[in-house]
Design a binder for these strands. Structure first.
Length: 396
DNA sequence: TCTGGGGTCCTAGGACCC
DNA sequence: TCTGGGGTCCTAGGACCC
């Protein structure tokens, strides 16, 4: 989709169509999406909201409404699946389609692309762009070049002519760090990297990255899709995720440990609740801390048994945080962001009960969690929550 | 008033085991 | 009398994506 969040948010407000509109940003936030009028001021997604504000003070800023965005996304993905079952959903607003099997019935990829584009336009009032190629990364590149509201084909026999002159950082999978690293050693364009024998490339940047880059610069990356695709809509489609987490940038940097503990309780409650809803337990609890100087550290602990118990996740996270802060010694640092993640997720089965350690008394917390889940399911997320979060909650 | 939140995958060192 | 080789698991950091 082209500027998906912004396009959907202003779809029914034609008076805003020509005005610069930014979704996201706000206090300590980044831009999620900017419509094309806003982009003319240099606003891009991922940019700090403050910077967007400076670039275009009269831009209209709005928060994303997922109650509006998610159904639109789902419906568009269903449209894609009417063309081929092989759809790899990568986010709310993007998917890869393998149309090899649909050509006899529906026509060339270009015909299919135009059909999809007009359906999306007719049914949802937004535009999208399509890139057509023989591999995932080349299709992705083509779609970026097709934007906005276009179709672009990069046929295999045109790949070298059209892609080798581009900057190596234009490739899908070559981020800022790898781009800088390659530029520093004189490899600027895709063609520059393609000229390096794969063995030499592997020695220069490591085995995996070397092989991966070599494939990318010859348009020879992945051709098989993973239908379903990630946890964009939660569990139920595709393979289960291996982790789930929640993190939060605090409104102001915080030095008070008790405030951080309370924030961890909010995050742990949310993460464990999501795990239970998805019938998953995780064996590793990971803590993320970003300090006010933006230095970010992770600490994790693997438990003997997987857990989905809110207070267990919280207790582990608190322990990790205290150890981290104690290790800092006297030079106290303020914390900007905290996050809790549950890793090594495993599917739980009906009747599964947690293994009790030898001599341990069942503390009853799994029962408490289940009772909370039922109440929250019926009356909303603020119906039942830890007492210490009442009056502090931007959310339960 | 700089810099979100949700993920995945890879690397590398150390512990531990046979 | 001087230390191998292979494997797994855990932890921390980093790159990348939308």
């Amino acid at each position: 989709m082209d500027a998906f969040y912004a396009s959907v948010m202003i779809r029914d407000r034609p008076e805003l169509h020509d005005a610069p509109v930014v979704v996201g940003g706000g206090h300590r936030g980044v831009v999620l999406s900017a419509n094309y009028p806003a982009r003319r001021f240099g606003i891009r997604s991922g940019m700090p909201g403050t910077q967007a504000q400076r670039l275009c003070p009269h831009a209209i800023t709005m928060a994303p409404d997922f109650g509006l965005l998610t159904p639109v996304s789902r419906s568009i993905m269903d449209t894609f699946r009417s063309v081929t079952p092989v759809v790899e959903v990568t986010s709310l607003d993007e998917a890869f389609l393998d149309v090899r099997g649909a050509r006899r019935l529906l026509g060339s990829p270009t015909v299919i692309a135009e059909r999809l584009r007009s359906r999306v336009r007719a049914e949802h009032g937004i535009t999208c762009s399509v890139g057509i190629a023989a591999s995932v990364s080349v299709a992705k590149l083509a779609s970026r070049q097709a934007k906005p509201d276009g179709v672009r084909v990069i046929a295999p026999d045109r790949f070298v002519a059209e892609v080798h002159p581009l900057d190596i950082g234009d490739l899908h999978g070559v981020g800022e760090a790898t781009r800088r690293r390659l530029h520093r050693i004189g490899l600027v364009t895709v063609g520059d990297v393609a000229a390096i024998p794969v063995e030499q490339l592997r020695r220069m940047v490591g085995n995996h990255l070397g092989s991966h880059l070599h494939a990318l610069v010859w348009g020879a990356d992945r051709t098989q899709l993973r239908p379903g695709g990630a946890g964009v809509f939660g569990f139920g489609e595709g393979e289960p995720e291996s982790s789930m987490g929640s993190q939060h940038t605090l409104a102001v940097d915080v030095g008070d440990r008790h405030v951080l503990h309370r924030e961890l309780l909010s995050l742990a409650t949310r993460v464990a609740g999501r795990a239970r809803a998805a019938h998953r337990r995780g064996r590793t609890v990971a803590l993320t801390v970003r300090f006010s100087d933006f230095v970010t550290v992770n600490r994790s602990r693997t438990l003997t048994e997987p857990t989905d118990v809110s207070l267990e996740v919280h207790a582990t996270a608190v322990d990790l945080l205290d150890q981290l802060l104690d290790g800092l010694g006297p030079r106290a640092r303020r914390v900007r962001l905290v996050g809790v993640r549950l890793e090594g997720l495993q599917r739980t089965h009906d009747g599964d009960t947690r293994q009790l350690a030898f001599g341990e008394r069942d503390p009853g917390w799994p029962d408490a969690d289940r009772a909370v889940d039922r109440a929250v399911g019926r009356f909303g997320s603020t119906a039942v929550r830890p007492a210490s979060l009442i009056g502090h909650g931007r959310r339960a």
